[in-house]
């Protein structure tokens, strides 16, 4: 069990059967009362943020969570297979857990897989990935007059990204996986 004095950023605790990570905390102490730690926690399954005031001496249950770096191997329909490069353990993760992240998966991309009670419950992609543009219309110079400065492009891993008009099919671009936004063109 953790004590209120163990609270620090990234501490993983179990509340109401759900795993949480501490994202922020603040020591507060009413004039004549016991100390509290005003704690902001993120639900590792839903991403929801809750605030809890934990009184000095209150106990917190540790959550059995583990983060492992794993390489993306291949997809089989809606399931995506990742491998731990040191143990060669493989795990299959469905689209439900990956969410929109599936569109950025390309061979041997290293992601952080979150396990809760030894079950994979989340995948964090690298913030940026470099991918090839698989399909996009050639950009016509005149289009900008109508205020269109971007066009849709399909990247090799499947996601659709808005790119500037000068980006051509076959070029490599850098994409922010958190927002799905184009960042820059990458010279090959």
């Amino acid at each position: 069990m953790y004590d209120s004095s163990d609270i620090r950023k990234n501490l993983k605790v179990l509340m109401d059967g759900q795993p949480y990570t501490v994202v922020d905390f603040q020591f507060i102490k009413p004039g004549k009362g016991a100390a509290f730690t005003r704690t902001k926690l993120k639900n590792l399954l839903t991403g929801g943020i809750v605030e809890k005031n934990i009184r000095s001496g209150e106990k917190l249950e540790p959550a059995n969570v583990e983060e492992r770096d794993m390489q993306y191997l291949y997809s089989d329909g809606d399931d995506h297979v990742f491998m731990d490069a040191t143990t060669y353990d493989q795990v299959s993760i469905s689209n439900d857990i990956l969410g929109g992240g599936a569109g950025y998966l390309k061979d041997s991309l290293t992601c952080t897989v979150l396990f809760f009670n030894d079950r994979a419950v989340g995948v964090t992609l690298p913030n940026f990935v470099e991918v090839e543009v698989a399909e996009t219309e050639p950009g016509a110079r005149g289009d900008t007059t109508a205020g269109n400065v971007t066009k849709p492009a399909k990247i090799e891993s499947g996601a659709e990204v808005q790119v500037p008009l000068f980006v051509n099919q076959g070029e490599r671009i850098k994409v922010d996986t958190r927002t799905g936004h184009y960042v820059e063109r990458v010279k090959s």
Partner: peptide, 20 residues
């Protein structure tokens, strides 16, 4: 009350959660 039983602990639990 998160396990509080003493008068001041009960009071400040509500105070810190809602009044402050």
């Amino acid at each position: 009350p998160r396990g509080a039983t003493a008068w001041d602990d009960l009071f400040y639990t509500a105070f810190v959660d809602r009044v402050e």
